[in-house]
Amino acid sequence: MASLTLGRYVPYSSFVHRLDPRQKIMSLILLMVAIFMPLYNFSSTFFVMGILFILLLILMAFSHVSLLSLLKSLRAMWFLILFLMLINVLVPIYGTEHIAFSIGNFHVYWESILQSLKIIFRLFMMIQVTMMLTATTKPLDLTYGLEWYMSPLKIIRFPAHEIAMVISIALRFIPTLLDEANRIMKAQASRGVDFKHGSIKMKFKAVIALIIPLFVSSFQRSEELANAMEARNYDPRAKRSRYHLLRFHFLDLVSFLLCAGVMSFIIYLSVANIDIFAQFGVYGTW
């Protein structure tokens, strides 16, 4: 259950929390692009990434996003990290020349290790920026933001409002379902089910004893919800007003320009293929 806390909304009143969700979604995309831009070589990549990483850490501290839960995500990724390392070590990449160590005739290159570290670092930063968004934005605001981006598609009869509705209902029911699952687990534990120990077969049976009641009650819930919505004459196509209006403030503009600036600068570095250390007079870095 602990891993589920990853990226959960944490109510604070920092300036990041108060930004317009639409702007935050856009910034997320801009920063993601920046993170995944290929740069001249490893040292340039790590240098630029490192600066961006530190900037984001400072921003995280300002907006009360927990560093601990970010580090926990690393623990959840251990298998991916292992897999990446293995694949990168086994598959030689272009320009491998620095041998880290050899096992008999088999050489492990520094480049392979750096390459996998680069990917892990990028993934980690991807989680970091996504967490920045989800931890500082109410799920409902997030869906409103998404709906806003999808609304131009309404012209081609794309069900933007319906999708936003479905997402917000799904988000709304996550805690409810967790409570429900917890309750059913306790009830089945009272009947002698052991969810933690036991053979694979026993665990399989235990999961069935949890999943089936959970499914049954969610179907029931969804039917009740649908009935309640219909009883109040809900029509997805109806024109509706909104209690919370999304407003684009000056601060939103500033943060958007900052993110766009960072992205453009990194794209420039990438496209122009600039060796950053060469700019400082250090040549021959990897």
């Binding site: 309750r183 009272s190 004893a209 089936i212 009641p213 049954v216």
Partner: peptide, 11 residues
């Protein structure tokens, strides 16, 4: 222990 609304535990 019989929980509240125990009918949800049937499967």
């Amino acid at each position: 222990l019989v929980f509240q609304f125990p009918e949800y535990q049937l499967f």
